[in-house]
Nucleic acid binder design. Structure first.
Length: 788
DNA sequence: TAATCGATCTTTTTT
DNA sequence: AGATCGATTA
């Protein structure tokens, strides 16, 4: 250690450095929020390559999101370029990569397409023919869950999920049907590789030898199947290092098991544990607020974060009348911070030590459910506050996009019954359900299961109309295939060549290549512009199939963007080659990484200050923002209704994750009423608000009755609102809440008549008291409601 | 067979 | 409030 320490290690604190330099035994890094976890992982990768002579290609680092994988690759490469050769992937993309090469050992055609939840439901509903849709959905969920836990249709443990015989039967049938089709669902991407590795010891050995080092990020979110995958990949000489934080485990609902991290030392004997407890992100009061909530959880490893940044602005809890005011409050906060940045003289609200002018991208609005984003969007749109919505885009879930993808999927795999059903009669070609069933039945009887072949063979027997329609459809697909083959160049062989043997030579990270080219879509609806590569094929399909026309007609009625969306999809395909391999790559990329930003979602994002981020709590994991507003902190919303025990603890962790995203400023909002399904419902403040250490909180607005013991901070306490509201004078009465551009939020303390007319006395959240003449209020004061 | 109108349900959270 | 689903109707 007395030798010169490389500079990239110098910047680490002792614990971080110990984590980087650790070797041999399995290592569990318990990394609190904001403790420099990513830095440790990336540095470790670089260090292993540089100082330990580890071949980068023998390093596997697994994450849960593509974003995290990309970031990790980028940062590791900055330290050492060779890190670019390491395999950095999500669990699922690793599974897909594995199955393309080794799936044939389990009878899987390497040309499989990945089914998403909707496809899964569609397939399932063809099995559960007359079950209500809700039940089908629920069954799909249970099957996903079963796969997360590595349960097969004949596992005895399946009873833990659903003990009914019928469930077992449906699950089994589903598996058979999916197998016949030759596609896989998300769960299969993990489960099938484990099955192969378990049953084929030669393959297992090959992989155990290939990966000398395996690292897992966000280990607290791993499910049982992923744990099994890990176990199968770790050989006697593999160095295993997992990083996680039990307090940030928020994916239980999709099978994540905190016990993976809690029991890691038992599962891998000899494990060393290193804790990273220095937080470099948030100020002390923010951390205090966050920790005081999660402290109420039982069953945690427990740790204490030290706020290296020291003191800062108190988090603010704002009680607001309703969700519209909530949106206004957020908008005002943002606008004020921007304004304050532009006019530094205006320092009514002084924030200790924060002198940087605020920009839009400093801000994030957090909410529990995607549906809550709408209110903020409308308000921000109105005020021209640039924003971007993370996650809920659902670009790939739109009808027109799913149609186009189904055409592509059917082209890639003519056994794909789900895709076939979706598009064979869209737009309607006279191929009704009866005909479709007949074709599918015929395909089941021929050995290949090829629906296109079965359909072709049936044409002579079908009615004239159905026959003609079927013919048209097949022609479209064939045309698409022709568009592939024409341009298929020898390059296509490159990826195929190393399929069996040396995956060591693999140039990896197809997930990382997708260059961010921003193609401007042609705005006219005349026709779709075909670029190069696979987009030629995509455009052909959506045009010739009539899908484009079908949706164009719809656009005219409801003013949608469907044609533009289809164009966007075609643009994305430009990056892929027009070959079968390119097609599969494109489809896989879409299934596994839906976070792609689409031009459709950009409103004014390109403006200088960036944009405010609208995002669910779940989606914020791994992110940080200078200023964060946690909205809808109400009982029933967050925590969601009837959450108790383990689930309540998970909600608490979610709260913790959200709060620890904030670097400088944290705001919490809680509404007195909220529209739920169009009905206005009275709300109660969240349980979590009572759990927050009160010394770490400043409260503004009116704490509702029942929020015992809390006295608003600005000097206007509950008592003031305890009685009936005073009679209004000139439209103002005691208890009215208002907003002032300079002073922020406040409430009317009293209204008195004077010789110049009614005088309104207002107390602001800053503690400031202001009097003004009612008739002079101008536009500087904005009334925002009252609390009765 | 397709389009239109009402009734009903919706909301977790995501790879 | 909005979407979705089914039944009714043209």
């Amino acid at each position: 250690m007395t030798d010169a320490i490389p500079s990239y290690l110098e910047i680490l604190n002792p614990e971080q450095r110990a984590a980087v330099l650790h070797t041999k035994n399995p290592l569990l890094i318990l990394a609190g929020a904001g403790s420099g976890k990513t830095r440790v992982i990336t540095t470790k990768i670089a260090w292993l390559i540089r100082e330990q002579g580890v071949d980068p290609r023998s390093i596997l680092a697994v994450t849960f999101t593509n974003k995290a994988a990309r970031e990790m690759a980028e940062r590791a490469r900055l330290i050492d370029g060779r890190a670019g050769d390491a395999m950095l992937r999500t669990f699922h993309s690793f599974g897909a990569w594995f199955l393309r090469r080794n799936g044939s050992l389990a009878g899987l055609d390497p040309r499989f397409v990945i089914y998403d939840d909707d496809d899964m439901i569609a397939l399932l509903s063809s099995i559960m023919e007359d079950a209500p849709k809700a039940e089908v959905k629920q069954t799909a969920h249970k099957i996903s869950r079963a796969k997360d836990y590595f349960y097969s249709p004949d596992s005895p443990e399946l009873d833990l999920i659903d003990s009914r015989k019928s469930f077992r039967r449906i699950y089994k049938e589903y598996e058979e049907k999916l197998g016949r089709i030759g596609n896989v669902d998300f769960g299969d991407l993990i489960k099938k590789p484990v099955e192969i590795l378990r049953s084929q010891s030669d393959i297992a050995h090959r992989f155990q030898n290939r990966f000398e080092v395996i690292m897992v990020d966000e280990y607290q979110d791993a499910n049982i199947a992923q744990f099994e995958l890990l176990k199968s990949l770790v050989g006697p000489h593999t160095y295993l290092c997992v990083v996680g934080d039990d307090d940030q485990s928020i994916y239980r609902f999709r099978g994540a098991e905190v016990r993976n991290i809690l029991e890691f030392p038992d599962r891998f004997p000899g494990t060393d544990i290193i804790r990273l407890e220095s937080n470099y992100r948030s100020t002390a009061p923010i951390l205090k607020a966050a920790s005081s909530v999660v402290d109420h959880n039982r069953g945690r490893l427990g740790k204490t974060l030290r706020a290296e940044r020291g003191d800062g602005k108190q988090p603010v809890l704002a009680f607001l009348p309703d969700q519209d005011e909530e949106a206004v409050y957020c908008a005002k906060l943002i606008e004020n911070s921007i304004k304050a940045g532009k006019e530094p003289a205006n320092s009514t609200i002084s924030n200790s030590g924060i002198s940087k002018p605020a920009v839009y991208s400093d801000w994030a609005i957090l909410y529990r459910t995607n549906a809550q984003s709408l209110g903020f969007e409308t308000e921000f749109l109105r005020r021209r506050i640039p924003y971007r919505v993370v996650g809920s885009l659902k670009f790939y879930e739109r009808e027109e996009i799913k149609d186009a993808l189904a055409l592509l999927a059917f082209m890639a795999n003519p056994r794909d019954e789900v895709a076939f059903r979706r598009v064979v009669n869209k737009p309607s070609r006279g191929v009704g359900p009866a005909t479709v069933d007949r074709i599918i039945a015929a395909a089941e009887n021929n050995s290949t299961g090829d629906l296109a072949a079965a359909a072709r063979a049936l044409i002579p027997v079908l009615s004239a109309k159905a026959g003609a329609g079927t013919k048209t459809f097949l022609k479209v697909i064939e045309g698409g295939r022709a568009a592939l083959e024409q341009t298929a160049e020898p390059e296509a062989a490159e990826d195929e060549s190393d399929k069996t043997s040396a995956d060591v030579k693999e140039t990896i990270n197809s997930a990382n290549v997708a260059p961010k080219k921003r193609k401007r879509s042609s705005k006219n609806n005349e026709g779709l512009a075909a670029g190069e590569g696979l987009s030629v094929c995509v455009v052909h399909l959506i045009q010739e199939s009539g899908i484009a026309e079908y949706h164009a007609a719809h656009d005219e009625i409801s003013g949608n963007q469907r044609i533009n969306n289809l164009q966007e999809l075609a643009n994305a395909a430009v990056l892929y080659e027009a070959s079968e391999a390119g097609l599969l790559e494109f489809l896989e990329h879409i299934e596994l990484d839906r976070s792609l930003e689409t031009a459709a979602a950009e409103n004014e994002t390109d403006s200088a200050g960036g944009a405010v981020t609208l995002i669910t709590f779940h989606n914020t994991k791994g992110l940080e923002f200078r200023r964060v507003v946690m909205t809808g902190i109400e009982q029933g919303v967050f925590p969601r209704e009837d959450k108790k025990d383990d689930e309540l603890e998970e909600e608490r962790r979610l709260f913790y994750v959200g709060a620890t995203r904030a670097m400088d400023e944290l705001y919490l909002t809680s509404c007195a009423v909220r529209r739920v399904f169009g009905r206005t419902m009275p709300m109660e403040p969240s349980l979590f608000l009572r759990e927050i250490d009160r010394s770490a909180l400043r409260i503004i607005g009116n704490a509702p009755y029942g929020f015992a013991g809390l006295t608003p901070g600005g000097g206007y306490g509950n008592a003031r609102y305890g009685g009936k509201p005073a009679a209004a004078i000139d439209g103002w009465s005691q208890g009215d809440r208002l907003y002032h551009d300079d002073h922020g939020y406040g409430a009317v303390a009293d209204v008195r008549d004077s010789e110049d007319g009614p005088v309104v006395r207002v107390l602001f959240e800053t503690g400031k008291e202001v009097r003004f003449l009612s008739r002079h209020q101008g536009s500087r004061f904005m009334k925002i409601g009252r609390d009765d």
